[in-house]
Structure formats: structure tokens, C-alpha cells
Nucleic acid binder design. Structure first.
Lengths: 347, 347
DNA sequence: TTGAAAGCGCTAACAA
DNA sequence: TTGTTAGCGCTTTCAA
């Protein structure tokens, strides 16, 4: 492994000073003879010289790098967000360091610290909520964007969607479409605003519609935790009640989708199916799946916009952006139609 | 944005030298009084001091960071690889910088250069093949792993799967299952080894089985490019021939899946469906989809293992790893069964 | 057990 | 138009 050439090497070879090379590297050709410029260009090419961004960052106190922590890069939400975020940042010359927390608060904390150690200029993360004090401190010194799980911290930015409204609206629609029962599938919602809000939206709809809520808590990866829910759905339908399964996210519906279909009840007439998230398989299955589509791309772009504006020194007074989701009604609940729920909000 | 505390600040506050603080930071407590250690710990906590990894990296010539470039973070293959790679690296204390090339050679080149500028210690990438000369040069100075599209460069590592064998085997199976025609769907394969090998595997099977190959080239995002393929399938079946659609990757099958099903031919009796890749919707659709499952996780882990070993200074003589894919036969082609194709190979 | 000082590769103020 | 030099925050050698 030969050592990489440095600016010193280039300067020596070209017979000029490092300052001149530095000027060249930063495109300040105006005060430089053509001959010098060509000489430097030659040497750089010959030596395969690449500037050291570490040294540059150390000096300039800027790394042009932003950090992102998501729960799991495999989740559609996370992938979608990361892609949009990374694209928007890349367009402004920023790099992205990505890490996965697996939803573990301790790991999340370590990851944040190590991003800080690497002097990322901003951090976007889907936080567990357990590091909020630390994040609030951090947010005083650098842009911090809480994504998806939008806890409210005075100095941090937050980007989320109108979970409660969208969830309430979806449940309303389902009742409206004639489902007598809605079995709501969720993972343990405690401490996770997103899940809590979606659940509350559902509960509100039940209250208004004067229906008994039916919340089934499942654990991903644990098939037995789904068995109860599936049995419940089966029982309701056998009792002659049109029943809809409404899932708090696409992954848990995915885990029980087959089993639900294998009950054999006709969809959508006896059994309705709806989920938060817009999994890529939503319109491959038959009948196509009703979903709440979150504006993932916009969330990533918006996060990048906030970060970039702040790093440019601009004022970004709206700390919180709540983007509107879209109800995508498909044949799995009977009728086709699609509508944005409410409007985007900044505050 | 207050300036972050430096090792100098800590030293001053604690009334010791920076050397001592540095020793503390690196856990060399053996030559340090307990009092000193406690004092330093206090000050660090009070100041919220975080070491600057840039300065450390500049001095140590090590950044503990690895770069990865994939075509698109949304592709199942890329996500799977990135996750496994990132996990394995994280376990060894490495960070990951991720970027997307969108399959564009120029952009890929820029990304590589900027990863180099950031002094990543190794690079794993799914390359277009257009930067092979540059990559070969680079591979002389740092570990470079070509993933998936495993071009053979003397100094670079390569990790791929046995595309040709798996593809041939899949086609054989399909003929064996009684499909008279296999319509092969692919994107333009020129210059992309993965696609070329898969196509060749299919062509070999046709040759051996004495069947006319039927290759349809499609372009993702361009519905009209799929229309021909779909019409062709329809025509064959109407002519009374059992026909299978075999797709070179999951994304292109996804784009035409609905349209194929809407032809109305019974699956698997008249129409068979099979694809390379193992999309997450493969067993949600009805009937479940026959696939060639690549060992994505192992590829990520293996890439990390190679990189880490090399960075530790160990010798890694096997430059190339070809991992075996698995044929997952499901009801979309009639019979359920699954088999690994061949064995993993190192050389 | 502790510290002084050189130096990693770069930028920019100042000087020529 | 070009160069000298201090310093970014850290590690490490050498000395005390």
C-alpha cells in the first residue's frame, strides 16, 4: 500500500509552493499563470493525487458530510427516506454516513456519538425517543432533524406526517364502506409517537362511529403473536360480520397476509384489508391493497432542505413540518379512490 | 453554533497536558494516577467533549470508514447487501459512507473519487464496468470489492453469484415442468456481466433442450417496452402452448406482473412465472412466485470479511468468491421444491 | 506518572 | 503572480 501523494509532493514536483497548489485545487485560477496551472494539472494527473478531505475538513471545520440513522435500512419507509435525503444532499455536494439503530436506544446513542466524532455537519434520525435530552443538547450546536417519529424538542427540527388524521380518516372510510368491525393490528406503541398517533386516530374513529375498538398487538417475527389476531378476524366473519383488518404498518400486514387470505373469506366482500405505508407489493396482490401512503420522498427532500438552509446560515423558523399522507383506496376494501388527507403544515 | 471543546480545552480545565488526555482517551490508564483519570473524566463529561475523528484520522492515517456505492438503494439486492455489509463492518467499529450511482459511469467515478478524498479505507461497489482501469489502479492501494457485477480485475476482490448456472438450471426446470416456451425478460445486457451470464444460462438451456429461445428486452419505467413481451406471451398461450415468463430480475417482473395476470390465463397451468431475485412479495402473491434466491446477506458479510481481513494486514489470497444461489420453486410454476445450485467457490 | 514538541495534509492571512 | 507560515485537533516520540 504506497502512501498517497500529498499537496507537498505536488508542489515539489511542480516546482511551486503548496499555496499555489491549494489555489489551483480550489479553482482560484485568476491569479495564476497558465503555465503554472498546466504544470500543476500535469503533476496531479501523473501522481494520481487526490486531496485529503480530512485535512481539509480539519482546517476548514467543515466535512461536507451529514449523518443519518434509521431503524432498519430494509424498511420501505427508511429506504425511501434515505434515498430522497441522500439525493438532495448529494446535489449540494454533501456526503451521507448511514447507520442502523435497530430500534435500540443504546446503540442509537453510540451511533450519534460516533457521527459527532466524525464531525458530520448535521444529523437526521428516526429516534427511539430515549436520547431526547442528548439530542436537544446536540441540536443547540448543529442541525438535528427528527424524522418520522417526530418528538418535539425546542431546538431540533422535526418532520412527520399527520398520522392521527390519516388513521382516523382511514378507519372512517372503512366503516363507511360497510365494515362492521375493524381489527387494528399494531406493534407495542408505548413511547413511539407514530404508533400512538395512528392508534389514537383509529380509536377516535371508533368512538365517533360508536363501534367497539378491536386492537390486536403483535410482535414481528413472532408468528404466535399473530395467531390471536387471525383467529379473531376469522371468528368475527364467521359470526356474519363484515370485518376489515387495518394494520399500523406494512411489515406486520406482510407477516400475516398469507394466513389471512388462507382463511378463505372473500376479499373485499367479507374481509377488508388496509394498511399504513405503501408497500411495493400493494398493487401486485389480488385484489390490490388499500393503503395510507406517506410522502416519503418529500420527507427526505424536506429534511435535506432544512439541513442545507441551516448550514448555509439561513434562518429556518419553522421547526416542524407535518406532511399530509394520501388515502389510497383500492379493491381490497371495495372501492377505488384516492385523496390527500388535510394539508402540509409548518410551525 | 458554539465551538466544540478540543483536547486542549480538556487539558487546560483538568490542569494536565494534552498528552495525558490523549492517553486517557485511548484507554492507556496503566501509567496514570487515579486522581488524574477521574479529573479528566469529570472535565470531559462537563464539557461534553467528543474527540475529533478527523484530526485523529489525519494523524493516524486511518478513518475507520468504508465506502459503498450501489446502483440504487431501493433495489432489494442493494438494500440487502448494504444491510449485511454495514452490520458486519459496524461490529468491527467501521462506519459506512453510502452513495448511489444510478448506474451512471460518470457519477460513479465522481463518487469513488470523493470517497477516496474522504480517505475511506476500502470501497465496495456495484460498478458499471466503465471505471475498471481506475478501479484497478485504486485496488493497488486499498481494498476494492466488486459486488454483484463481478468484473475480473487483478487486484480487486470480487463477490458474485453463479448467475449462469442458476439461470440455466432454472430454465431447465421450467422446460422439465412442461413449459413449451420460455419467454425471457431482460434489460439491455451489454456490458453488464450479471445480465449477460443470466441470459447465457437461459440460452444454454434452450440449446440443450432444443427449444427456440425467446428473449424480450424491456426498459424499466417504459411501459410500451413491456407491451411486446406481454403480447408475445399471450399469443403463445392462445396458440395452445404452455408458456413461462422468466425474468432476469425482480424489478422488471414487478413492472409487468399485473398486466401478465390480467391476460387471464391460469397460473401455473397455462402460464408459468419465474424470476431472478427474491422480491419480498414473492410469497404474498397468489400463487406464490418461483425465484432464484441470491445469498445477498452472505455476500455482504463476505465482502466485509474480505475488507476487514485485508485492513488487518492479513493475506486474502482468494480474490474472487462466487456464492451459490438457490432455486425456489413455488406454485407459480406448479411444483414446490427448493435446491441450492452448485457450491460456493473461491479463487 | 507526566509533559513538550513535532507533524499528519490542508487553507488562508500576510508578505513579497 | 507567488511564497512563507501558523494552525486546525490529535498522537507519539523522547525526555524528565
Amino acid at each position: 500500500m504506497p502512501k498517497r501523494a500529498t499537496i507537498q509532493d505536488v508542489a515539489r514536483e511542480a516546482g511551486v509552493s503548496v499555496t499555489t497548489v491549494s489555489r489551483y485545487l480550489n479553482g482560484r485560477y485568476e491569479s495564476m499563470s497558465d503555465r503554472t496551472r498546466e504544470k500543476i494539472a500535469d503533476v496531479i494527473a501523473r501522481l494520481g493525487y487526490r486531496p485529503n478531505a480530512l485535512a481539509k475538513g480539519l482546517k476548514a471545520q467543515r466535512t461536507q458530510t451529514v449523518g443519518a440513522i434509521v431503524v432498519n435500512m430494509g424498511y420501505p419507509f427508511c429506504v425511501g427516506f434515505l434515498r430522497a435525503f441522500s439525493r438532495a444532499l448529494g446535489a449540494e455536494g454533501y456526503h451521507l454516513m448511514v447507520a442502523e439503530s435497530e430500534g435500540d436506544a443504546r446503540r442509537e446513542r453510540q451511533l450519534i456519538e460516533s457521527l459527532v466524532a466524525n464531525r458530520v455537519e448535521a444529523i437526521a434520525l428516526q429516534t427511539s425517543g430515549a436520547n431526547n435530552d442528548y439530542l436537544e443538547d446536540l441540536a443547540r450546536e448543529m442541525p438535528v432533524v427528527l424524522v418520522d417519529r417526530a418528538f418535539s424538542l425546542p431546538h431540533a427540527y422535526a418532520i412527520g406526517t399527520n398520522n392521527r388524521d390519516a388513521s382516523r380518516e382511514m378507519a372512517w372510510q372503512l366503516f363507511d364502506l360497510g365494515y362492521e368491525r375493524i381489527v387494528y393490528l399494531t406493534e407495542d406503541e408505548r413511547g413511539i409517537p407514530t404508533r400512538t398517533e395512528r392508534l389514537e386516530g383509529y380509536l377516535e374513529a371508533c368512538r365517533v362511529a360508536l363501534r367497539e375498538p378491536e386492537v390486536m398487538r403483535v410482535r414481528r417475527g413472532d408468528a404466535s403473536s399473530f395467531a390471536d389476531a387471525i383467529a379473531r378476524v376469522d371468528a368475527e366473519i364467521r359470526r356474519g360480520r363484515r370485518t376489515a383488518v387495518y394494520s399500523a404498518n406494512g411489515l406486520i400486514l406482510m407477516e400475516c397476509y398469507r394466513a389471512l387470505r388462507q382463511l378463505g373469506h372473500p376479499v373485499p366482500s367479507a374481509l377488508g384489508l388496509a394498511t399504513f405505508d405503501h408497500p411495493d407489493w400493494a398493487d401486485l396482490v389480488d385484489p390490490p391493497l388499500t393503503c395510507v401512503r406517506q410522502p416519503v420522498d418529500e420527507m427526505g427532500e424536506e429534511a435535506a432542505r432544512m439541513v442545507i438552509a441551516r448550514l448555509r446560515g439561513e434562518d429556518v423558523p419553522e421547526k416542524t413540518r407535518v406532511l399530509a399522507s394520501t388515502l389510497v383506496m383500492r379493491e381490497s376494501t371495495g372501492r377505488e379512490q384516492s385523496a390527500r388527507i388535510g394539508r402540509d403544515v409548518s410551525r
